[in-house]
Amino acid sequence: MSGAGEAARPLPQGPVGWIFRIAVAAGTCALLAAMSVEVLAVIGRHTGRPLVGSIEIVRACVVLATSSAIVAATALKAHASVHLLTERLSETSRARLARLGALVSAVIFAVFAAGSIWIAAEIWPGDERTQLLGLPIAPLRAYWCAAAALTAALFLAWALGRRR
């Protein structure tokens, strides 16, 4: 886990680069929208014009932002891991382990995607809507399902990709 001010690393290129850029663009819009709505809600509350249902809008933005963030972090290969033992291995064994790790990662995100898709499909006819504004939740579920599936696909591509 690291944060602000780390040396700039190269951004992903090619198809992964496109996925990354779209995820960042979507995440940026969603996060800035969440920020603006909450600022307006606070101003509204303190000036006697409360913004009804602002939490529901922010929640929708949060789904879009965090789903995009998982895709973006994956495209950057930024998922935190422990390198205590692997650092001492040879180049080839390390590469093999990395492939294995990517495969396991693909499996777990495929499980998250499959579970989420199953649920979304089952809830679909139930017309899931937020309480105050009646915003439909199905599109948000679909977005998260797509993000989880895309994350699994990115890992799978690395696991099966050609050797450098």
Binding site: M35, R59, V111, G115, W118, L140
Partner: peptide, 29 residues
């Protein structure tokens, strides 16, 4: 197991209270 992980995944990404994490991160950056 499949259903539980699906429920946990969507509940986590849609949690309003956790949404403050990315916003504080953004403020710091």
């Amino acid at each position: 197991a499949l259903i539980k992980s699906g429920v946990v995944a969507f509940e986590t990404v849609s949690r309003y209270e956790l949404g403050v994490l990315p916003l504080f991160l953004f403020m710091a950056h």
